[in-house]
């Protein structure tokens, strides 16, 4: 019993010491308010680039903007694990960064850390995703509006003035932000009766599953003239099923193909006229955040707290090679 007490005392002491040591380093940074001279210290917390083509482009975007040449001293931490992200955020705060840029793995559980950041004078800017926390805890948020992506796509589809809209709807992983946003607009059309839901099924973002779903629709003898896939991979899978069954697709053909994410290979399909529409989910937030930080550094206030990234929808009839080079993700 006594031994345990001594041991816990030692552990406790060593913990306090290390914390104090870390705190010292942070304390120095806290005292001098961020000024124009010296690089701006930025801590970036993101998901790992291996998560998706979107994330790879997102990470690259931040790497090209937050450079030493641009006046930043940036360090980045990648994890898809919220707890690890929280630890990294704490570490960044004790390291005394001026700004904390955050794309949270999960939307919950950030209140405490964001409070710590506020107390330490660290300005937090959210990007890509919102978190469930009080608005006062962060300076700004630069995010995608997934629901808007769905709206844009459905508005485009309505603009095609097809005689009927018989839609095969292939959803992403159920419950993910992208799925909910991109499903919402189309569900509203199904509910109003403007479009007919032939089949609605989750393809879990996978090309193979999407192919199997569309095969099943074809084999059941149902006819349809629109495939609305919530990402490019699933649109590709759907097209593979159509190809095998001898159903034509693309500009001026039997079935309209719609995808999301704007991978380069997908936009090439658009340019070739094999697909009809691809909706963008912009991973390019770094430039906007860079502008915000420059404004804050100059003592200005930001005009709006939540900035929605401008996101386009590409039409196969109007897309150019230049669009592919500018907006296409991956290689």
């Amino acid at each position: 019993m006594k031994k345990m007490k001594v041991l816990s005392l030692i552990i406790g002491l060593s913990l306090v010491l290390t914390m104090a040591a870390c705190g010292n380093g942070g304390g120095d940074a806290d005292t001098d308010t961020p000024s124009g001279d010296g690089p701006i210290k930025v801590g970036i917390i993101n998901n790992p680039p291996s998560e998706s083509g979107y994330r790879a482009a997102n990470v690259k975007d931040f790497e090209t903007v937050f450079t030493e040449a641009n006046g930043y001293d940036a360090s980045t931490y990648y994890s898809i694990n919220n707890d690890e992200q929280l630890d990294a955020a704490k570490q960044f705060i004790t390291d005394g960064v001026d700004y904390l840029l955050l794309s949270a793995a999960s939307t919950d559980g950030w209140d405490g850390v964001l409070n710590d950041a506020k107390e330490a004078g660290v300005k937090v800017i959210l990007f890509d995703r919102m978190v469930n926390a009080d608005e006062g805890l962060y300076e700004a948020a630069v995010v995608s509006d997934m629901a808007q992506e769905g709206e844009t796509a459905v508005t485009w589809l309505k603009g095609q003035s097809l005689a009927t809209y018989d839609v095969v709807h292939i959803q992403g992983v159920m419950g993910s932000d992208a799925q909910k946003g991109r499903t919402g607009a189309l569900d509203a059309e199904f509910a109003s009766g403007a479009m007919t839901k032939i089949v609605q099924q989750t393809g879990n973002w996978s090309a193979d599953e999407a192919k199997a779903i569309v095969e099943s629709v074809i084999n059941s003898g149902k006819t349809f003239n629109v495939v609305y896939a919530e990402n490019d991979d699933m649109a590709k899978g759907a097209v593979a099923a159509l190809d095998a069954a001898g159903i034509t697709h693309g500009v001026g053909k039997d079935v309209v193909i719609m995808g999301f994410d704007c991978n380069k290979w997908a936009l090439k399909e658009l340019l070739a006229g094999n697909w009809n529409y691809d909706g963008q989910c912009s991973p390019f937030q770094a430039t906007v955040i860079d502008g915000m930080i420059k404004q804050l550094q100059a003592g200005e206030t930001l005009p709006e707290k939540k900035v929605i990234s401008e996101e386009k929808g590409f039409d196969a009839t109007t897309i150019t090679q230049e669009d592919i080079d500018t907006y296409g993700l991956g290689d």
Partner: peptide, 29 residues
């Protein structure tokens, strides 16, 4: 659905005659 396992010979988009149907889908996938 009595026609669930029916298999048909269709012309695919490359112009080849190929087998198509749930049975083929299942075994293929």
């Amino acid at each position: 659905d009595p026609s669930f396992f029916s298999v048909a010979l269709v012309k695919n988009n490359l112009g080849n005659m190929v087998l198509s149907g749930n049975l083929i889908s299942i075994i293929d996938n």
